[in-house]
Design a protein around this nucleic acid. Structure first.
Lengths: 355, 355
DNA sequence: TTTTCTTGTGAGACCGGTCTCAATTGCCAA
DNA sequence: TTGGCAATTGAGACCGGTCTCACAAGAAAA
């Protein structure tokens, strides 16, 4: 491979020579450490300016061991949930003069492992991860730098974690549906599950998904709805068959009269599918979704949502991580942020008609 | 500042000692260069595994001069336009084993300068920038590594650039409005302009904004609409007063009968303002926006949009940059991707009523 | 005036890799 | 048997910073 002509960069030694001082002294001025007399200080700065010196952060990191950047591994930046969270992270990072190296896992564990390996090799000072699966976390356990988890908790991993009260949120949202008289309620998530769900919570990949399902089931149980487990639909992500599966669900004889969607991407897809099937919200079917995405307030009808403090989620997890980088050694925190339900017009009342 | 206890990482020398070979030989195996006999090769790998050796990418970059990462400076990741473009960039980068360091400029030149300085110090191999202003580009000119521009061209900067046919797109969209009989057409953009617009295109900050305005004016001129310059509204970003300004615009006596919006964030805000003013699309007012954001197809009515190939925009600019990193020294390319107009239901016909 | 600090400066090791160059070895041809 | 050549290996310089340590000079204390 041909090497690019490698610009001969100006180094500390060059500046030192120009300023007629030793390399050590020039480095002190340029690196902002140690003590230097004001005269020499000025001379070095002048020489640096004359030569257009630019520090090589890599070389600096080499000796200090600190790189001044943190790695962030999320499922999919394209998802508004993550892009907002990343915004929160990078705002917090910038305040501390730290920058962010971003990696997409595409919700795939292998990609996640590889991303983490690369980021570690780049000597990031810390990592923020949204683990794709809670079953496969060996690679997370052996991370050598401070780690913080975003949106998804891992009981076995005692590290700083920021999540939202998923179970309670799902409970309240589902209860809103049962109290409106709904009994055939579906929970639709993008997450994958190997095989069918039969109360085997342990097989659910991520805590967020598991908690929400538990909340959903709590509310169903509370309302005396049997077999609610069968109404949980996995794999409604961006895959090809997902939309078709939704349509099948909506066209089936015992189609749900209400749906709770796990994120705004799924909900948008559902919204479209509902319309394509000629159904009307909330007359034929009610819809609530997680995440107050921008579009949910402008549809007809506007969608009732579970508003998660996404920006704060990112901001707090970054702050937690940065605090730890600065040497804080308090035991790890697990912050659970509250959600609120924004009631709009997508939930309709349902008479007591049997199934 | 207290230093974190600095994990004593395993180095090439450690592995060499373990494998009873020289540091140079171990480095050859671990770094994958030079020639090593198969026996020694295996021995080194085994030692590396036993010691759980992990390469220090920083040290490697130190000597090679290559860091294996590119920097990306965008206006705002939260804007779906940029998050989709970033997705395109990072997908392309991953294919080449390159990773992405992300920085937000918040459309502020100073922040942009600072971000570029930091990224350069981190020795990124290349930079992708969405320049916030075309007036202040000295900092871009003195970038030492390959640079590529995303979405916004700079005539004075002869570097790889990928944009869309903004002028033509604005022309076609505006023409669609004039042909529907509209004569009071507003162009609303988030971009800022110091003072009012009076044909002084040179004062417009970014090429994208300028091109679109020129296209808009072309169409107005073509339709014999005088003084269209006065219908260009700047500064409709996320600022506090923006929404109120929109409402004033919509409530004024000579309010426009049609609006062209510069991006989906502005359009969404307009959509809300229009509804709040009790106006109906397309009966009272027509709306077309740049960027086929997800929500535009689910509103009532769905919005006619100028569909930009955003993902491809990011992907191509990354590919261009990476090609250059690999030593390609063809003259810089300026790729202009075509847009298409997706006609939905937000454009209404207007009788020939005078102003 | 001598001793003890303090302060500023320079010399050089070091971080963890890459890479050049010379030395050693084995193999084949002359 | 000896020379030549290729393949493999080791020693050590180097990248561009940081940081330790020693030393010099002036200030403060004895």
């Amino acid at each position: 491979m041909k090497r690019p002509p490698k610009a001969p960069s100006v180094t500390v030694s060059d500046v030192a020579r120009e300023a007629k001082v030793s390399k050590a002294t020039a480095a002190r001025v340029l690196g902002g450490y140690g003590r230097v007399s004001t005269t020499v200080h000025a001379a070095v700065l002048e020489a640096a300016k004359a030569l257009d010196y630019r520090p090589n952060e890599l070389a600096r990191s080499m000796t200090t061991g600190r790189s001044g950047s943190i790695g962030v591994v999320v499922g999919d930046i394209e998802n508004p949930f993550f892009s907002l969270a990343v915004r929160g992270i990078s705002d917090a990072a910038r305040l501390s003069g730290i920058n962010v190296i971003l990696a997409n896992s595409g919700e795939d564990v292998e990609a996640e492992k590889s991303a983490i390996r690369v980021l570690m090799a780049k000597q990031v000072d810390g990592l923020i991860v949204t683990p794709a699966q809670s079953g496969d976390i060996a690679h997370l356990k052996e991370i050598a730098c401070p780690l913080a988890l975003l949106d998804r908790a891992l009981p076995e991993l005692n590290v700083d974690t920021v999540t939202v009260d998923d179970r309670n949120a799902a409970l309240r949202a589902t209860r809103m549906l049962t109290q409106a008289g709904h009994r055939r309620i579906a929970y639709v998530t993008a997450a994958l599950l190997s095989g069918d769900f039969r109360g085997a919570e342990s097989r659910i990949n991520t805590s967020t998904v598991r908690e929400r399902i538990l909340g959903f089931l709590d509310a169903c149980r509370e309302a005396g709805i049997p077999g609610a487990e069968r109404n949980i639909h996995f794999g409604s992500g961006r895959s090809d068959g997902a939309h078709a599966a939704m349509q099948r669900l909506l066209e089936s004889a015992d189609r749900p009269t209400a749906i709770l969607a796990s994120d705004s991407v799924v909900a948008l897809d559902l919204f479209k599918a509902i319309r394509e099937c000629g159904l009307a919200i909330p007359r034929d079917i009610s819809l609530i979704t997680f995440h107050d995405a921008d579009w949910t307030s402008v549809t007809t009808p506007p969608i009732t949502v579970i508003d998660q403090p996404v920006y704060a989620l990112g901001k707090s997890v970054a702050e937690l991580l940065i605090r730890r980088l600065k040497g804080d050694d308090r035991p790890p925190e697990r912050i659970v942020l509250p959600t609120t339900i924004i009631e709009r017009m997508s939930v309709g009342h349902r008479g007591d008609a049997g199934p």
